[in-house]
């Protein structure tokens, strides 16, 4: 931001010393214009970034553990994900939030083919592969091959359900509760849950 001494320049931490593509230059110019036109303040921008960095798959793990432990909560979570997630005190973006349950005969996996929509406000930043053109193009067309590359081998008795997050809904997979976890505390159960299981690129949660 050489030669630019507005206040909002000081709150900006570039990933690179200089913009390294035309797209990056356009993005920076747009940001400056939006701030100067008063659409948002640098402080609001910082707060959004901080909130996203604070969110993590651990939050998804706590939600899954509650659903495993409390059938009434699970029913509410599957019926209206956003309301049930806010019930636990999480602030999530005003999207409809849809929780898809895996069971013995169904495996759910999430993608955004058009861009890279991801429930950032709940799970934090998305993994690089989720944004890759390869994952986005292939998981809708050959989900079983992609899942196998992640180590998920599915028999023909399990149906794959791919969810293309193309518009205003956000998704989370509710993994199957692992066997031999009867009587476990919610805290201990939550620790079993991984980011990939919440996206659907992992099916089995190891308990040891």
């Amino acid at each position: 931001m050489t030669g630019h001494d507005h206040d909002h320049s000081r709150t900006f931490q570039p990933d690179h010393a200089e913009p390294h593509s035309d797209g990056a230059r356009v993005g920076l110019a747009l940001r400056e214009l939006l701030i100067e036109a008063g659409h948002y303040t640098p402080e609001e921008e910082q707060a959004v970034i901080a909130a996203m960095q604070h969110a993590s798959p651990q939050d998804g793990g706590r939600i899954a553990a509650r659903a495993w432990s409390d059938p009434d909560y699970k029913a509410r979570l599957l019926a209206n994900g956003a309301a049930a997630i806010r019930e636990l005190g999480y602030e999530i973006e005003p999207y409809e939030f849809t929780v898809m349950e895996n069971d013995a005969s169904t495996h759910n996996v999430i993608v955004c083919t058009l861009c890279s929509c991801y429930p950032r406000s709940l799970l934090g930043m998305s993994p690089a592969w989720y944004k890759s053109a390869s994952y986005r193009a292939r998981v809708v067309r050959e989900p079983r091959a992609v899942l196998a590359e992640f180590g998920v081998e599915l028999g023909d008795d399990v149906n794959v359900r791919v969810h293309d997050s193309t518009a205003e809904l956000r998704y989370m997979v509710l993994p199957q509760r692992p066997d031999n976890t009867e009587g476990w505390s919610e805290e201990k159960l939550a620790d079993l849950v991984t980011r990939d299981a919440l996206i659907g690129t992992q099916r089995i949660l190891p308990t040891d």
Partner: peptide, 25 residues
């Protein structure tokens, strides 16, 4: 949310006949 059988979506789809795709329209 619209549910489409994968076998109708892709020619020569190789997965199970019960595989589906769901998309927001």
């Amino acid at each position: 949310r619209v549910r489409i059988p994968q076998a109708e979506l892709w020619q020569a789809y190789s997965g199970a006949t019960g595989d589906q795709l769901e998309i927001e329209i």
